[in-house]
Design a protein around this nucleic acid. Sequence first.
DNA 1: TCAATTCCTACTAATTTACTATGATTAGTG
DNA 2: CACTAATCATAGTAAATTAGTAGGAATTGA
Lengths: 134, 134
Amino acid sequence: MKMSSKARYGLYAAVVLAKNYVKDEYLNVITLSQATGVSEKYLEQIIALMKKANIVSAIRGATGGYKLADSPDNITVGQVLRAVEDNLEIVDCLHSGCSRKGECVTRNLWGKLYDNINSYLDTITLTQLAEDKL
Amino acid sequence: MKMSSKARYGLYAAVVLAKNYVKDEYLNVITLSQATGVSEKYLEQIIALMKKANIVSAIRGATGGYKLADSPDNITVGQVLRAVEDNLEIVDCLHSGCSRKGECVTRNLWGKLYDNINSYLDTITLTQLAEDKL
DNA sequence: TCAATTCCTACTAATTTACTATGATTAGTG
DNA sequence: CACTAATCATAGTAAATTAGTAGGAATTGA
């Protein structure tokens, strides 16, 4: 049960953006790539997922870049991870019509575990990570 | 962040064994295969992992089979999953010497998340699942 | 001795992950 | 307007992982 690299890199980039939030600057992907150690092209894709989820906003063209769409106080780790990790679902069986759905003795557990993980992740904000106060 | 099929199948099999615990019988892999819908050969491998972790005990030879090594009241879902899922670690970076170890702003989070998940999973016993009381 | 079973380990097909690569589109600047 | 620097969109691919299959040795009861 591993977090994908998208989850790791995406969260890392989000925290970099969080640290930069006070200044009203846009950071371009080159800067973010250097700060995180992730290739520019791969980061682009990951940030695009966060943009789609309205976590970051972007400006195109020369002098363009990215910043958080909202205060890092209001953005949780859960939001970020759900945006970049399409598979935050612990198992497929929950919403795919598993044939043993009715009789399965473990089904409930996976649902509860998923809820547990997400509610924990939603208690932590980007600010907390940015300020290293966890 | 998906649970492996080993985790799903292993837990399923463990609960089947839990339901059977009162009777002092050993269930063979054929029976477990039918109960879970997992192929015999694959189940064998998964159960072997639980055996190695002293969660199940086995008797070899004709009329052999498997049963839980302890009361299902004393076996947690966490124990089972850690036994069959070698990768319950959320990320590798925690114990592999990541080069950004010192500066990484997300490192702590992964550790806490891992602890959170495991302490939740350790509150749930096989009995609870077997009796569908979750 | 035979049959039924666990145990051990090698192999493989399919899937997923983690990228790389290309190029279109957009916008500021001289 | 031309140029340049940036995001955006999407296709392709190599490596790693997962999810199994397969074969046979070892063990035990009858």
